[in-house]
C-alpha cells in the first residue's frame, strides 16, 4: 500500500483539531494535577494518622490502577450520581486525579531534599513558619520539582489518547474516525504517532536542559 500525501493533506485539519483538544486536556489536566498533588502532600504531613493513612491509601490506590479504567469509572458512574460533565471535563478530571498521585511524590521528595540545616537556620533566625516555607523551603524545593513535573506533563500528554475511550475528540479519536471513513488507517495513525514524537521529544530535551541548568541532575 502506497503512502498518499493528498489524503494526508485532506485529513490534516481534522487531526489538528484533535491536537488542540489533546493540548487543552494536557494543560488543564496538568494544572489540576499540580494543585491536587499539593493537597495530597500537605495532607501527608497532617499530624493525625486518621487523616494521613486514608489519604495515603487512596493515593496509592489511584496510582496503582489503570487510568483507562478510572476514566470509564468517572464517565459511567458519575452520571448515575447526577453529576454530569462533558467528556473533555471528565477526561481532565481523570488525568488530573491520576497524575496528582505522581506530583504528590514529586513535591514530597522536593521538600525532603531541602537540607535539615535550612530548617534549623530558619528557626535560629526566628523566622515565622509561613515565612520559612515561602522564603526558604519552597524556592529550594522548586529547583528539584520543576523538571520532575515537566516529565510528568510529557507523560500525561502521551496518555491523552486514552480519552478517546470516553468519546473525547482528541488526535487518536480523529485519526480513527478518518481511518474508519476511508478504510485507510496507515496515514492518519502514522501521522498521529509521529506528531506525538515531534512534540514530546523536543520538550523532553528542553526539560533535560532545564535539569542541567538547575543543577538537579
Amino acid at each position: 500500500m502506497d503512502w498518499d500525501w493528498s489524503y494526508v493533506w485532506d485529513f490534516m485539519p481534522q487531526i489538528l483539531d484533535g491536537l488542540v483538544v489533546t493540548l487543552k486536556a494536557t494543560v488543564l489536566g496538568s494544572l489540576l494535577a499540580f494543585g491536587l498533588g499539593l493537597v495530597w502532600t500537605l495532607l501527608f504531613r497532617v499530624p493525625s494518622r486518621w487523616v494521613r493513612w486514608p489519604v495515603r491509601a487512596v493515593v496509592e490506590f489511584v496510582r496503582d490502577t489503570p487510568l483507562l479504567v478510572q476514566l470509564f469509572f468517572l464517565f459511567y458512574v458519575l452520571p448515575t450520581l447526577d453529576i454530569s460533565f462533558s467528556p473533555l471535563v471528565t477526561g481532565v478530571i481523570g488525568l488530573g486525579l491520576h497524575y496528582s498521585t505522581y506530583t504528590a511524590e514529586v513535591y514530597r521528595a522536593g521538600i525532603e531534599a531541602v537540607p535539615r540545616g535550612q530548617w534549623e537556620a530558619a528557626t535560629a533566625l526566628s523566622l515565622p513558619r509561613t515565612h520559612t516555607w515561602v522564603a526558604v523551603v519552597l524556592p529550594q524545593a522548586l529547583r528539584r520539582v520543576v523538571p520532575a513535573l515537566g516529565n510528568y506533563v510529557i507523560a500525561m500528554f502521551k496518555d491523552t489518547p486514552l480519552l478517546y475511550a470516553i468519546a473525547v475528540l482528541d488526535m487518536l479519536k480523529q485519526a480513527q474516525e478518518v481511518g474508519a471513513e476511508s478504510f485507510r488507517y496507515l496515514e492518519p495513525m502514522t501521522v498521529v504517532g509521529l506528531l506525538f514524537v515531534v512534540i514530546a521529544y523536543p520538550t523532553s530535551l528542553l526539560i533535560r536542559l532545564l535539569e542541567r541548568r538547575l543543577g538537579t541532575h
Binding site: K158, D159, P161, L162, Y185, M189, F196, V197
Partner: peptide, 12 residues
Amino acid sequence: FRGTSALVLMFW
C-alpha cells in the same frame, strides 16, 4: 518509543 504514546503505537 519514549516519545510516542503507547496507545497510538498499539493502534498503529
